[in-house]
Simulated assay, not measured.
Amino acid sequence: MKDLLKQWMKQKIIRRIAIGLGMTSLFFSIYSFSQPSQEVETKQINSIRTSTTYTLEARVKPNVLYPEGTTLHPKKAFTTALADQLLIHMTIKVDSNRPVKVKGSFNPELVIHADDLWTKSFKLKSGREFSQTCQDCQVEETMEVKVSELIQYLNHIEDSLQIHPSNYVFHIKPQLTGSIDDKGKTFSLQDGDGLHFNRQQTVLSLADKEKLQISETYPIKNVIQQTNNLDLCLLQIPVTPARIIFSLLTILLVTVVIFTSENRKQEDVPEYAWIDYKYRKLLTPVKMQVNLEACTELELESFASLMFISEEKESPIFRYENKHEVLYFVPDEPFVYYYITGKR
C-alpha cells in the first residue's frame, strides 16, 4: 500500500511540474504565433533625381527695334514679326549617389494642328542616340523651328485651300525614348510630351498649363528578409521552429497531466490511505480496541462530515485500525461520531 501511495505522490509531483511547464510552453507557443516568422528591413541604397528643362531662344532678324538683330529669351510668348527662328534647348540632368547608365534617343518633330481642320507632322532633325555612365549626367538637345518659313507655309495653305483656321497649335515633340539603369533597375526618362505653342496672328505663346521644367525622384531601396528569432534569455530560436517545438511540447505536457490525473490514480489507492496521508497531522492513532457500545453511536457518511464535527467540537480525530477496516471517531459524551472505511 505504501508503494501505491509513493507512486501516486510521485505522479502528483510529475503532474504539478507538467502543469507548470505546460503553462510556460503554452505562453511561448502563443507568443511565437503572434510574432512574424520573418523580419523585412528596407534600406535606401540610392536616390536618382532627374530634371528636364526647356529654354526658349528667339533669334531676331535686323529691324527697326534691333538694327543689328539680337537674341531674345522669352518665358511665355514672342512675336513672329521680330523673330524668324525659334530654338528650344532641352537639358536633361540625372543626379545619383552612385554611377548609373543613361541611354536613349531623340527623334524631334513638329506637329501642326489647325483647329480641327487638318494636322501635319514635320521632322525637325535627324534622330540621334546617346549613352552615358556617370553620377551627374547631362544630356542636351536643341530643336530648331524656322518661324519665317513656317509662316510662309501656312499662308500658302490658306491661300491655296481657302481655309483660315482661327488658331494654330504647334506641338514640338522631342520624342525622347530613354532609360536610367541602376544595376538592373530601370527607370524611364521623362520629356513631358514636349511643348505646345498657340499661334494667334503674329504671336506665339506657350499653352497655359505648359511647364518648362519637370522633375522626378526615384528612390532605390533594398529589401532584406531575415529570419525572426525568439530571445529566450541567452538562447535564440527561429520563430517557425519555436512554434513547432512549443506546440508539440504543450500537447505532450497536457497528455502527461491527463494520464497522471488524480481521479485516475486515486482508484488504485484505498480511501484510508488517502485520509491518512492528507490529514496525517490531524489524526491521533490509538492501538487499543475501542468499545463504542458505551456511547450513543453516530455513524457519518463521509470523513468530511467527521472533520466538520471535529472542528465544531474542538476535539481531535482518533484513528484505530484492525485487519479489515479503519475507524475514525470523535468522542463527545454521551455520543461518539465515527466513520469506517474498509481495507483492500
Rank of each mutant, 00 (worst) to 15 (best):
E301D: 00
A83R: 08
N291L: 10
S247E: 02
S188L: 14
L150S: 03
L189F: 06
I258L: 12
Q213P: 05
V326N: 12
S160T: 09
K43D: 06
H89V: 13
L327P: 05
Y338H: 07
K211G: 11
E149T: 14
I48L: 09
G22F: 02
L306A: 09
S51C: 09
Y328V: 10
I48D: 10
S148R: 11
V223Y: 04
A77Y: 09
T296A: 15
G20F: 08
S315H: 00
D193Q: 08
C137G: 07
M288L: 08
Q236D: 08
A273Q: 07
L300Y: 00
K93G: 03
I245R: 06
T227Y: 12
K6V: 06
Q152M: 06
F187K: 04
S105Y: 07
E262A: 04
L150V: 03
M23I: 09
E314D: 10
D276K: 15
N167F: 14
L248Y: 12
S29E: 05
Y54T: 05
Q38N: 00
K76I: 03
Q138Y: 03
P74W: 12
Q38H: 03
I340Y: 08
H171L: 11
E299V: 12
T24H: 02
R16A: 15
I244C: 08
S29R: 01
V239E: 00
F335E: 07
R344S: 14
K287E: 13
